[in-house]
Each structure stands twice: as structure tokens, then as C-alpha cells.
């Protein structure tokens, strides 16, 4: 019915999207954009599941995709609520400014 799409190439596409999402998480300071990058990574993982499911002609891949989707939805809801809360408290959503939970200042005092 159609030309066969190579498994490797589609998996490579998923891996590439995953990598780009990882770069996004690592270089963005804005928490909302970091979450978007996480969505990209989740989407790439789901895509890999679907490809694998199609490869073996099994429905499990798509089932997993649906679960990932559900999880992503819940995660975004809670995560965005957290970001809102944080913005109320700190007036900022810059991840680099939220370093209060470090162990460096106390470290120099205790020893």
C-alpha cells in the first residue's frame, strides 16, 4: 500500500528529537521553556514506542504512547501550577536564580 519507511531512519528521527529536547533542557533558563523541552523529549520517547510497536505489529507501542501522553498531561498541569506558585513567591521563573537548596555556603562554615 505504501513504500516501506525504514525503521532505522524513523528511530533516528526520534533520537534526534530527544537530543534536541535535551539540549533545550540544558541551555534554557526559563522554567516554562525547560518544561517545553521536556515535552519534546517525552514526545520523542513516545514516537520511539510507536515505531517499535509498528515494527513488531503489536498494539503495545501505541498503548505506551497513550500512557506517556497521559503522564505528560498530568505533569504539565502540576508543573505549571508549581511554576505559577514559584512566580508568586520569587517574582521570577529563572532556574539559575533558584539555587537556595545548595550545600555550598554551609559547607565552608561547617568545616
Amino acid at each position: 500500500m505504501m513504500e516501506q519507511i525504514p525503521v532505522e531512519q524513523s528511530l533516528l528521527l526520534a533520537a534526534l528529537l530527544f537530543g534536541i529536547g535535551l539540549v533545550g533542557v540544558l541551555i534554557r533558563k526559563n522554567m516554562i521553556l525547560m518544561m517545553m523541552s521536556v515535552e519534546i523529549m517525552l514526545n520523542a520517547a513516545g514516537m520511539a514506542f510507536i515505531i517499535a510497536g509498528s515494527r513488531w505489529a503489536q498494539p503495545d507501542g501505541q498503548v505506551m504512547f497513550i500512557f506517556i501522553l497521559t503522564m505528560a498531561a498530568a505533569e504539565v498541569a502540576v508543573g505549571l501550577a508549581l511554576i505559577l506558585k514559584l512566580f508568586h513567591l520569587q517574582k521570577s521563573i529563572d532556574a539559575d536564580e533558584m539555587t537556595q537548596m545548595n550545600d555550598i555556603t554551609e559547607a565552608s562554615e561547617s568545616n
Binding site: V7, E8, L12, S54
Partner: peptide, 29 residues
């Protein structure tokens, strides 16, 4: 980060391209 992602991608590519059954085809579910 880009370097790190590139390494990860390289490893994943290696894993994908070294599959024992590389010529497998996709089917509709």
C-alpha cells in the same frame, strides 16, 4: 550541552544501526 546531546545521539544511532534485523519493515496497527 550540545556536545553531550551529540554524544548521546551518536550512542543511540550506534544502537539503532547495529540492530540484528535491520531490514525489518513497519506495519499498520
Amino acid at each position: 550541552p550540545a556536545l553531550m546531546a551529540a554524544i548521546l545521539f551518536a550512542i543511540l544511532s550506534y544502537a539503532i544501526l547495529n540492530q540484528p534485523v535491520a531490514t525489518a519493515s513497519l506495519s499498520i496497527v
